[in-house]
């Protein structure tokens, strides 16, 4: 069994290692869970990871007040019952919450606008961590700023807790549309793009060359049905986060499973029709009028 002696030096927490887990989550569904029971339902349904948090975004929205990192005991409880990756959220700029989450051994930290921001100017320096980070973005400039800080996954923000896909579509179209435009920009125009996006020139030039972000792009914020998940995937997202959409619906387990199927078979309308049947009522959802507070506007 040991004909080969070759065990080279082991490097942990490098960018390829952190980004690697993001690659492994592609094509999957990451589900928000607030209890170990939810986490089991999510894993049983085929979730590729769970996001452990104290309240789903719809409840955070309803309750108001300050939303913070979850209690470590609650995260431990979820880690104990599932074998899939466990993610957890830290407040924007709250690097100590991130340190605690890393110490707990969570697999991914979401520096999230769904929680109340801790810093109104700075995001976390994500290069300082071994644990990988995902950050939200509403447009390409925001995505590139987060990547330049060390994020190894971007999720379009959408509008968490609404069950309304419209903002997710807006943000995906903005990010991917600008990437498409950038690929036709000449070298002089790329400087202007960097200035307009308020993003590092090197990243702008790289995207002009490759036509894609240097890290995976997932979709979050408003997915409530299998069709919503498939829409995000057809628009160009590489995986989806589902928050309130599952556990605020009438019948979470079959809905969770249907969203998993829809994310895999996102281009197959026959399968989408089949899995969309008889799921019971989705979360009620809310429209976004003028007084509505957009969580997506948090982050800089």
């Amino acid at each position: 069994m040991t004909e080969q002696a070759g065990s080279g030096r082991r490097a942990t927490g490098t960018f390829p290692v952190k980004r690697g887990l993001a690659e492994m989550l592609k094509g999957g569904v990451i589900m928000d869970v607030v209890t170990p029971e939810h986490a089991k339902i999510a894993e049983d349904a085929g979730a590729c990871a769970v996001m452990a948090l104290e309240r789903v975004p719809a409840d955070i929205r309803r309750d108001g007040g300050v939303a913070r990192m979850s209690d470590p005991e609650m995260i431990d409880g979820i880690q104990a019952v599932v074998s899939i990756p466990v993610m957890a959220k830290a407040r924007i700029g709250h690097f100590v919450e991130a340190q605690i989450l890393e110490a707990l051994g969570v697999d991914f930290v979401d520096e999230s606008e769904v929680l109340t921001p801790a810093d109104e100017a700075h995001h976390i320096d994500k290069y300082a961590f071994k644990v990988p980070f995902v950050c939200g973005a509403t447009n390409l400039g925001e995505a590139l700023r987060r990547i330049s800080e060390g994020a190894c996954m971007i999720r379009s923000k959408g509008e968490a807790g609404t069950g309304n896909i419209v903002e997710a579509v807006r943000h995906l179209r903005s990010i991917l549309g600008d990437i498409r435009k950038l690929t036709t920009a000449d070298s002089a125009e790329q400087f202007e793009w960097a200035k307009r996006l308020q993003a590092p020139l090197g990243l702008v030039q790289e995207i002009a060359e490759t036509g894609k972000l240097p890290v995976p792009l997932f979709c979050a914020g408003g997915i409530a049905t299998p069709a919503d998940a498939a829409l995000a995937m057809q628009l160009g997202a590489e995986a989806v986060f589902v928050g309130s959409g599952i556990f605020k619906s009438d019948n979470p387990a079959p809905r969770a499973q249907a969203i998993v199927e829809a994310t895999t078979h996102f281009r197959d309308p026959q399968i989408l029709a089949k899995v969309s049947r008889g799921l019971g009522a989705p979360m009620t959802g809310i429209g976004m009028d003028e007084e509505f507070i957009k969580l997506a506007e948090r982050g800089w």
Partner: peptide
């Protein structure tokens, strides 16, 4: 994930190490 790593490996049939993630 915090224990995930990269390292060079010798693989039978390859004449130089393979960088494995």
């Amino acid at each position: 994930q915090v224990d995930s790593f990269e390292s060079d490996l010798d693989v039978i049939g390859l004449d130089s190490p393979f960088h494995a993630v």
